[in-house]
Amino acid sequence: MKKNLFLILLTFHQTIFASTVSVKKDGDIRADPSNSATVVSTIKNADKVLILGRKGFWVEVKFGNSKGWTKISNLDIKDDNNSGTSDGLSVLSGLASGRVGTGNIVSAAGTRGLDGDQIKAAKNDEVQFKNLTNSRVRPEEATSFAKAAGLNSRNISYLEPPVPNSTDQPVTNN
């Protein structure tokens, strides 16, 4: 009974926070988020899949009767032009269900945000700047702090910039 209730609630949760997106590139749906995992189904351009979760650069999807993982790059997760559905991944952020943040920081600045006008009207605050620089740390301190948490450096090269798409239009801010 309890198990059934849990499954119902889980399904309900996934229904609320799931989102349907289009497939933009043919690809596989695998049993696990790994290139070596078993292929359980395939998806083709323009197919619709239901997003259920994300792990790294993989997304858990439901397609027909199949359920599994595919790479985000196979999907078009951009805003689907006011169709009423949420952006593919925003539903997975946790914000949709109010579950984000550690709760260890509460602003004392009230509700008004920092906008352009405030910045334009601002005067240099040298005391604040001094306080800022007082919190600066030495590289050795930072390295020790990283090692204390078990962080290890990796030797990774930068990615090559993508080849420009001739159909791309420049972005302008209005």
């Binding site: 920092l114 005067k123 605050d125």
Partner: peptide, 22 residues
């Protein structure tokens, strides 16, 4: 900083410096 003051918690300011500097 003239428009938005530092968050008043020295531990937090040090923490973000330790992470960022690394």
């Amino acid at each position: 900083l003239g428009a938005a003051k530092l968050f008043s918690n020295n531990n937090l300011q040090r923490y973000v410096n330790l992470v960022g500097q690394n």
